[in-house]
Design a protein around this nucleic acid. Structure first.
Lengths: 128, 128
DNA sequence: ATTGACTTGTACGTAAAGGTCAATTAGTTT
DNA sequence: AAACTAATTGACCTTTACGTACAAGTCAAT
């Protein structure tokens, strides 16, 4: 069950460019294997890319994403580090909760605008 | 009742720089009054800035924010424009729903990481 | 053997969203 | 009046996250 994905397979699936995936590798986010010089992506790489892109969608920077990825690769063993990490997690959580609030508010606003549009459309429809 | 806000008042309140507010003016997002050369912000400007920053937090570009702001200033009157606008609204809504999902998933992930941290901390605490 | 699809690395370019610095100007304390 | 203070415009600078172009190598199919 050693299915490998080529780089273009993944770019097609995720709608990103090869440049993007290579960039992520340069940035140390992913480490695909190599056969000669060409990259071979495994299922784990694929999942990681999914997570990276999810992070990207919600506005995480590369540095932030890398931070999370690192934690998965090797969770800190030292007390101080752990506490620091937990503080960072708490901050992120607050950040995300705010964003969710922002999104909810904006969704409501969009509903309002849409309704205004519909009203307007009805007016025009009647008028003509 | 003509309370005016100075630019620094607002930068302090919102935690942005004067450069940012001027930039938003250059970009046509806000139009504060002037007394001589200095900007005078009214309550409406203040609220608009709040909305702009909310848009910024959820990852809207300046162009997207401007688009929304424009709609508020002068909603399109023509049929085609209205339909186009409604399509754009639908797209944005989809976008935001996806982001919400991303955020929820990430929040769960953060919970997991935190729990792992706590477990680890307990181990260390016991071990020493 | 050549075409075409895919891959590589290197390197320069770019758009977005401001940061930073300089040189004023205007009002107001001392 | 001199010195502060807060505001202005303008110009250039910076970072992030890739885009784009180029030259070159791999491999299968025609």
């Amino acid at each position: 069950m050693h299915k490998y994905y080529s780089i273009t397979e993944l770019t097609r699936e995720f709608g990103v460019s090869t440049r993007t995936l290579r960039f992520y590798e340069d940035e140390g986010l992913i480490h695909p294997e190599r056969r000669g010089r060409t990259r071979l992506f495994r299922a784990a790489d694929r999942r990681l890319i999914q997570e990276i892109l999810r992070g990207r969608r919600i506005g995480f920077t590369i540095a932030e994403i890398r931070e999370i990825v690192q934690v998965y690769k090797e969770p800190p063993g030292e007390m101080g580090q752990l506490k620091l990490l937990m503080k960072r997690i708490d901050e992120k959580r607050e950040d995300l909760r705010q964003k969710r609030k922002d999104i909810d508010e904006t969704l409501i606003e969009l509903d309002n605008v849409e309704e205004a549009c519909l009203t307007r459309l009805a007016e025009i429809g009647v008028g003509t």
